[in-house]
Amino acid sequence: MAQSREKGREEEVRSAPEIEGSEIGSSSVSSVSSSRLQPRRGLRSRTILLRYPPDMGEDHASDDSWCDDGLSSEVSDSELNREQKRRHDHFYTVSLLRFKAFKFQNQSASLTQVYMGYRDGISAGKESSAQEGFNIGFKQSVQDGYKWGIVRGITSAFASLADHSKEKLVKKIEDRDKFHSLYESSQEISADDALKMYHNQLLQKSQPDKKSEGNVESTRLAEEDLECNKLGSLYIDLTSFVSDSSEMKLNFELANDETKIIEKGWKSEKC
């Protein structure tokens, strides 16, 4: 009984066009060795052979009865394609069915796998790009910070000098007063304030179109403008003032290359 059914099945298998000789051999051996599973498997393989003929392996991706998760269907596709080439059809249909059952039980498990992989990926990606980003940011801001520091340094050092030294450096009394007022306005800005101002200034630069958004917004932004550019305008005030009216020789060496460009930027923003 079992023998005759097996014969019939084997013929059915032979009729499939893609099957290679060696695989047919292995299939007959396996069918014999696992003959007690035969009735059930025979039944399934028949139906599935019709639905998934071996030469149309690509098609089972379109059948969403068992693959409803986009990500894993891709995986199982390639998995199954490999199986298909390597094996006899009923083996793969069995594994496919088991796989399907497994997938239904483990939907959440596979999502967890994806999520865990993603989480690891995020931290690995961050790790490998953080230094690069840091260097970019550092180089962008170090010049601006340096110039602001020079303003603070010059005014503070000047203010701390004895009066007769001040007179030697800056001849006119009104220029000395100007220096003093610059000193006071730079002292009003703490290091944290300066950082905040600089931050706002950067934000503003990155969103220049915002200014056109309504009146209320634009007045508010105009105020912020003033605030943000205070650092830059103090620097410009000081440098032009120093070169005009004092004996000081300033060393802008480190900031020199970009000074002009940024000054221009600041000036145009001021206008």
């Binding site: 260097n135 940011g137 910070g145 110039k147 340094g153 290091a191």
Partner: peptide, 16 residues
């Protein structure tokens, strides 16, 4: 980096 750069730059600029 922006934050650090500004701070380091400011301090060095001050000394300079």
């Amino acid at each position: 980096g922006l934050k650090m750069g500004f701070q380091v730059g400011e301090e060095l600029g001050f000394y300079q």
